[in-house]
């Protein structure tokens, strides 16, 4: 591929962290609505989505159909509440519209739909996103564009066989403009992911398929931006970033619990969750600002 584009939004890691906190507030509010939502997986991926949309993806809410844009597919479509919140913060839709989530007659369904600006493809059934992103990356290459395609998968999703069909194809096609991210929160709906399908030596598995693989703390904005922004890491190989995360991260009474997978917050628990996020914000405010500039390195 050709030289990477310039950084999209100069953005400090503190700003990313602040944005992630606002995203969590939106998600908590959405999950207190009539239908509830997939809070756990949205919170394990909040920093990943925030880093992508605010410091990595070359996308413009004012021109969502720009053919030169980077593409993103939320393969773990159940994290839609997180995606909607990030898209709203980024300017794709009014933040006020988030109050519509799950309410009859609105467009904010429980899984992403293309009617929402910024959503490239509908997802929700697991194991689809990697092939879609391969198609986008292939199209970008055939068109001679320098843009990249990103996809976020859950670790439970890796139990779907179609993921591995696409893992083979991406490496075979040498799609080094493709970047896959795994939200390795270790939990799926009914319990530990490794209890269903042990994912030991996950990085080696993907390497053996021909991918360039890195691992990082999925809640560290600076690390996420550094890795995602600098892909491809090896010429001719697609990139995979395994992000170690905590399901329900940011709401102590839900962190690391399978019950966080799908939550309809009562008024009391909504208030508790909001209080926890405010406390985190106060703690962050007393810490020194990290001025690392995010964005794709030249």
């Amino acid at each position: 591929m050709t030289a990477p584009a310039a950084p999209v939004l100069p953005c400090s890691t503190k700003e990313l962290a602040d944005t992630a906190r606002r995203v969590r507030e939106h998600v908590v509010d959405m999950c207190a609505g009539p239908e509830g939502g997939h809070l756990g997986g949205a919170f394990s991926s909040t920093e990943i989505l925030t880093a992508l949309y605010f410091a990595v993806l070359n996308t413009d809410p004012a021109d969502p159909a720009d053919p030169d844009r980077d593409r993103f597919v939320l393969s773990k479509g159940h994290a839609a509440v997180g995606l909607y919140a990030v898209l709203a913060e980024r300017g794709y839709l009014p933040t006020a519209e988030l109050a519509d989530y799950g309410r009859p007659g609105t467009r904010l369904m429980g899984h992403p739909v293309r009617a929402v600006p910024g959503v490239e493809m509908p997802t929700g059934s697991l194991g689809h996103g990697l092939a879609l992103a391969c198609g986008f990356a292939l199209g970008q290459r055939l068109d001679g564009r320098s843009a990249r395609s990103f996809v976020l998968m859950g670790d439970g999703e890796l139990q779907e066989g179609s993921v591995w069909e696409s893992a083979i194809a991406a490496a075979s096609l040498r799609l080094d403009n493709l970047v896959a991210v795994i939200d390795r929160n270790g939990l799926q709906l009914t319990g530990p992911t490794d209890g269903k399908a042990p994912m030991a030596r996950l990085a080696e598995r993907w390497r053996s398929f021909g991918w360039a693989v890195r691992e990082t703390d999925g809640h560290d904005p600076a690390a996420l931006v550094e890795h995602l922004g600098s892909a491809p890491w090896e010429p001719g190989r697609p990139s995979l970033l395994i992000c170690h995360t905590v399901k329900g991260r940011g709401v102590p009474f839900l962190e690391g619990r399978p019950a966080a997978h799908y939550v309809t917050l009562s008024a009391r628990n909504h208030a508790r969750a909001r209080a926890a996020l405010r406390a985190a914000a106060r703690a962050a405010a007393t810490a020194g600002e990290d001025t690392v500039t995010a964005g794709r390195p030249a």
């Binding site: 092939a131 391969c134 198609g135 990356a137 055939l142 395609s149 194809a169």
Partner: peptide
């Protein structure tokens, strides 16, 4: 899936 991604890219 790849066909869909390509079709969404104008092919």
């Amino acid at each position: 899936g790849i066909a869909a991604g390509l079709a969404a890219s104008g092919r």
